[in-house]
Amino acid sequence: MTQAASATSEVHFAQPNLGEQLAAMSDQALDGLDFGVIGFDGGTFVTRYNAFESKAAGLPPNRVLGQPLFTVVAPCMNNFMVAQRFEDAHDSGEALDATIDYVLTLRMRPVKVALRLIASPASGTRYVLVRRAT
């Protein structure tokens, strides 16, 4: 991974306060990360989608950006384990930062991943971060 040693390689999937870091990063900087980043707004419309996630999911950003995350882009997350956690955090006005084991269904194939769910009342953008199990 030496050739990927850019400024952004200092940002890791599991590090604390990741939400603030991501908010401060440009889209180009997000593209340099080695895990998937999906940012979405209060209406669940996808606002940020990095190169890693686009490549792993096989979806070009233009087919994802502006689409509702839980009904069109990732229906597999539309349950109490993911979608409802964001709703609950919003309703209670509390911050959310949780990492869970999950299974995504890319091209009909089940793929084990870790998902990190990040939201804070102060920020308009929420994040689902995806780390593929190695």
Binding site: N79, I100, L104, M108, P110
Partner: peptide, 18 residues
């Protein structure tokens, strides 16, 4: 093989998250 709705419905039931 499985599609997204299958994962959506099955994940909450799978005790071992796989």
């Amino acid at each position: 093989m499985m599609n997204p709705v299958a994962a959506q419905l099955l994940m909450p039931l799978a005790a071992d998250s796989s």
